[in-house]
């Protein structure tokens, strides 16, 4: 299916960019007149995915994070967050709620939040090459969709 509108963003793997990334994505999606709750869900899910790239993909080191947002017919949105970091060995295990490799301060809820706040979460990862997370959500919005 062909996207009606797209946005691409490339950011450095720095924690200060987490806030920018979620605000930029939410801002692009605003054209669909989402509800406050839908926007909140998207900001939170994007924050989790970008944080994963920084913390796990690049181990807090240097790298680039690539974000592509696409809007399709019927107000379906996909957000792809990709890194060229270390990759995930066992995706199934990484997606288990409360699984964390980082101990005390990480809640292990990143994927659980993404899965509960979005309609679909797809993860592709190759060890040593990187990870891409695709988040999908249909925006029901405040009005009947204009598209």
């Amino acid at each position: 299916m062909k996207a009606i509108n797209t946005m691409k963003l490339e950011i450095e793997s720095r924690s200060v960019n987490e806030s920018f990334a979620r605000v930029a994505v939410a801002s692009f999606i605003s054209q669909l007149d989402p509800t406050i709750e839908e926007l909140g869900d998207i900001r939170t899910a994007v924050s989790e995915a970008v944080t994963n790239s920084i913390v796990h993909g690049y181990k807090e080191g240097k790298g680039k994070i690539y974000i592509t947002v696409s809007i399709f017919e019927n107000a379906k949105v996909t957000i792809k967050i990709r890194d060229k970091g270390c990759g995930i060995e066992n995706i199934e295990e990484a997606m288990q709620p409360l699984f964390t490799t980082m101990g005390g301060e990480r809640s292990g809820l990143g994927f659980a939040v993404m899965e509960s706040f979005m309609d679909k979460v797809k993860v592709n990862s190759v060890v040593g090459k990187g990870t891409s997370v695709t988040l999908e959500k249909k925006i029901n919005g405040r009005f009947v969709t204009k598209w």
Binding site: R22, T44, T51, G104, E105, R106
Partner: peptide
Amino acid sequence: TFMDSSGIGLIMGRYK
């Protein structure tokens, strides 16, 4: 004004 799972991690860590 905003929190992701880091806001939960903060509570869990302080609880410990």
